[in-house]
């Protein structure tokens, strides 16, 4: 992009956050990126799980000890919420790509739905994990 020549009129820039009223579809868009970046880190942790499992009993017990600690479990719970949110919102994007659900009313409703799905599915999975003795 070339700079506007000096002395010309100031060109309008894209909307600034200060003058942009928050709305739920904006939140779901930002959350999709944030959870995506978080899941990038989580996938690297999953790769480390496979590596330590293959490496030997000492490496594995050390790593599982880290994941099983209180901060480890808190991180894994956040990963679970992020995973289900990103999954739900990803399906929502695929529906949009098919040309459906793009009107404001549907988009607002599906925003609430994917946020609720992320939270409810994550809590459900952790309850099942607790019942299976995995915690």
């Amino acid at each position: 992009m070339t700079q506007a020549s000096s002395g010309g009129r100031e060109r309008p820039l894209s909307p600034h956050l200060q003058v942009w009223r928050w709305h739920v579809t904006m939140l779901t868009s930002i959350l999709n990126r944030v959870t995506g970046v978080g899941l990038y880190g989580a996938t690297l942790l999953a790769a480390a799980w496979a590596v330590t499992l293959a490496a030997g009993p000492q490496a594995y017990s050390l790593y599982m000890g880290l994941l099983g600690s209180i901060p480890g479990k808190a991180a894994l719970f956040l990963v679970t919420v992020s995973l289900f949110y990103h999954l739900g919102n990803g399906v929502r994007h695929l529906v949009w790509d098919a040309g459906r659900g793009l009107d404001i009313k549907s988009a607002n409703a599906s925003s609430a739905a994917v946020i609720a799905f992320g939270l409810v599915a994550a809590v459900a999975v952790w309850i099942v994990a607790g019942l299976m003795g995995a915690l």
């Binding site: 996938t43 690297l44 999953a46 790769a47 496979a50 590596v51 499992l53 293959a54 490496a55």
Partner: peptide, 16 residues
């Protein structure tokens, strides 16, 4: 990072 992590994970799983 992606190629390295993917390679490590796949080799580890195959080894097991």
């Amino acid at each position: 990072i992606c190629v390295l992590a993917g390679g490590l994970a796949v080799i580890s799983i195959l080894k097991i």
